[in-house]
């Protein structure tokens, strides 16, 4: 009687039916080599399980739990007055920063320094919401148009760029002046307009040069998912877009 190694593994994994299990157990009684093989695979299974056992006892990072809690709310494309009110509350959960993925993930994530210029277009609007078209103010416009590194402590940071189904170039952004706002702005034939604005996450301390993909609030990412056509732009794509002043390629 031969028992192949796949069957031994299935035996160790508890995947054999009663008859096959009994057959192997009977064979083991008289077959020392088989016993050794079973033992070897049991040890491996135990060791593999044990090697990652510690993590089960750890308390998961708060950021993960916060993500689940945040996900329970409806899409947070919000009234900006509410944002202003909420922002006054201390202890808002910090977003997790994707420490590593961001580095390679989005080739041209930039932090744009905006010396002056308030977020007039967004900040003064009582009800910025998806679908509403708000012209971006000069400060935001300047930030959205730029490509290249900027100083730390920037007011507005541009995230990633993509094209929407209408062929327009769009970019995610975060700005903090009166309030932290995240959103998506797209450029039509003439100008940038804010298509989506949402309560921004607490922006990481000055010195964070990048806006990580995961800094973008889920509501904005969901909006991007609905808008995006194809992958996000890499550095070359952004350079091309800028060359044509972010006007849609027809």
């Amino acid at each position: 009687m031969t028992i192949d190694e796949t069957e031994v593994m299935a035996f160790v994994d508890g995947e054999l039916d009663a008859a096959a299990t009994a057959r192997i157990e009977a064979a083991m009684a008289s077959d020392q080599a088989l016993r050794g093989e079973v033992e070897r695979h049991r040890r491996l299974r135990d060791a593999a399980h044990l090697a990652f056992a510690d993590i089960l006892g750890e308390t998961p990072p708060a950021a993960l739990i916060d993500t689940i809690k945040a996900g329970s709310k409806p899409a947070e494309v919000v009234d900006l007055d509410a944002v202003r009110a909420a922002r006054a509350k201390p202890g808002a959960p910090r977003p997790s920063v994707a420490r590593f993925w961001q580095a390679g993930a989005i080739a041209a994530t930039l932090v744009i320094g905006v010396a002056a210029g308030r977020m007039v277009g967004v900040g003064s609007a009582p009800n910025a919401s998806a679908g509403g078209l708000l012209a971006a103010d000069p400060g935001l416009t300047q930030a959205l148009g730029a490509v290249g590194p900027a100083a730390p402590g920037a007011v507005t940071r541009v995230g990633f760029s993509f094209r929407n189904h209408a062929g327009e170039y769009c970019r995610t952004f975060e700005t903090r002046r009166d309030q932290a706002i995240s959103g998506v702005a797209c450029h039509d034939d003439q100008r940038w307009s804010v298509r989506v604005a949402a309560a921004g996450p607490t922006i990481p301390a000055a010195g964070a040069y990048r806006m990580a993909a995961s800094d973008t609030p889920p509501a904005v990412l969901a909006a991007v998912d609905a808008m995006i056509d194809g992958p996000s732009l890499d550095a070359t794509g952004e350079a091309e877009a800028r060359k044509q002043d972010w006007r849609p390629r027809r």
Binding site: T67, G71, S96, W101, S214
Partner: peptide
């Protein structure tokens, strides 16, 4: 067990949760 270090792993979980919730 898939990623190469613990930080990467939690980032993967984070993105997975966001995707799942969406």
């Amino acid at each position: 067990s898939l990623a190469r270090n613990a930080d990467d792993a939690d980032d993967i979980v984070q993105l997975g949760l966001e995707r799942a919730l969406r």
